[in-house]
Design a protein around this nucleic acid. Structure first.
Lengths: 202, 202
DNA sequence: AGCAGAAGTTGCCGAAAGAGCAAAGATGCC
DNA sequence: GGCATCTTTGCTCTTTCGGCAACTTCTGCT
């Protein structure tokens, strides 16, 4: 508790704002939410919202980043003698495993909710912000990989971003797949292909 | 000439706007350019700018997309019996080969220019738009790969996005590398590693 | 040609976003 | 308790953003 109450409150406000942004956007639709509403929902002034986030999209994306940063954290927590790719798989799987539950404000696993999320995700402004956010996550991942392997140059970044690409493709497939498939499944498939060098399948 | 003059003019305006946006942003700095200035520079009204692009960032990103879409085009143009990865390498290399020259409004290969580009690229809003744009390129690439290989499912998308990741890492490295390295070099290295399944280098 | 309709451009307007500034309210430290 | 510091907030101004309707220009058809 380095900074005590002050820092704590800031984090709370930040999370409250981000969470409010997500909830309202899912419920009413992205475009129908004014940042004023979000601020009100979180119990702060409009101006304060702006002190925390540059835009509505930022606020929504922030949740996702913080969640995803856990992957890098998890990777760092893995035993140092574990082979890189084993550690990576474990870290990612751990991330998605807790997916349904936890991670801050518990989400209603509603059908309605998922529908709202999908609709929300079609918003270009939001997609952009999310990608930006993931880029930051990629940096963190690259750093973790560099630390673990002691390798410099493009390699860590390349691995991090390729994993990011896999994550993205898996999420997209998961949202689309009609006979639903488990994320773990899709993820394993994608990582297998990547580790095999993405040869053209028969 | 299916649509003739009208369509042609539209493309011209679009390019003029996009080009003006890039040039002004590089010269004056992203934040110091108003979309009004861009419209004026391209000889249309502010309102018309908005008919073409949703934002300043969009206009700038558009140039890059159109340029990058050529990769997918090039990939489609490759002989059908060429192995996928050979074709991919060729397509990407062709893209970067013409880099210095051509591609519409010729760019001054200035030192000044590069510096402006780099500064411009630090703008988050722009980065977001560019990533979004590249996502569209990824769709096109995935489609091309799917056509070529006849494969459905995640594979085409995965390959497309992994290549996209590689492109991104290479560009970043290229902009940063102090003893400058050729793009072709970096690219070959990255693709080699990917095709090898990204094993931890010795 | 000539004409009807589609498409593109533009100005105007109101709503909202985005950023600077200084006053007011908390919190941390002594 | 009391001062220094950081946050929050209200105010204001500029810019963005999107809808609407008038006006112009192109296309297709007769």
């Amino acid at each position: 508790m380095a900074e005590g109450l002050r820092e704590r409150k800031k984090q709370e406000t930040r999370i409250a704002l981000s969470w409010a942004a997500v909830r309202l956007a899912v419920e009413r639709g992205y475009g129908a939410v004014r940042i004023e509403d979000i601020a009100a929902e979180a119990g702060v002034s409009l101006r304060t919202f702006r002190n925390y986030f540059d835009s509505k999209a930022d606020a929504i994306a922030a949740r996702e980043v913080e969640r995803s940063l856990k992957i890098a954290e998890e990777l760092r927590a893995r035993p140092a003698d574990e082979p890189l790719w084993v550690a990576i798989r474990a870290a990612i799987e751990a991330h998605f495993a807790l997916g349904e539950e936890g991670h801050g404000g518990r989400r209603p696993p509603d059908e309605q909710w998922l529908k709202g999320i999908r609709l929300m995700m079609t918003e270009p402004a939001l997609q952009g912000a999310i990608m930006l956010a993931y880029a930051r996550v990629g940096e963190e991942m690259a750093a973790a990989i560099a630390e673990r392997t002691g390798i410099t140059g493009m390699y860590p970044r390349l691995v991090a971003d390729v994993i990011g690409a896999a994550r993205g493709v898996v999420m997209a497939e998961w949202m689309r797949a009609d006979p639903p498939r488990s994320i773990a499944d899709l993820l394993a498939e994608a990582l297998d292909q990547i580790e095999a060098g993405l040869p053209v399948p028969e």
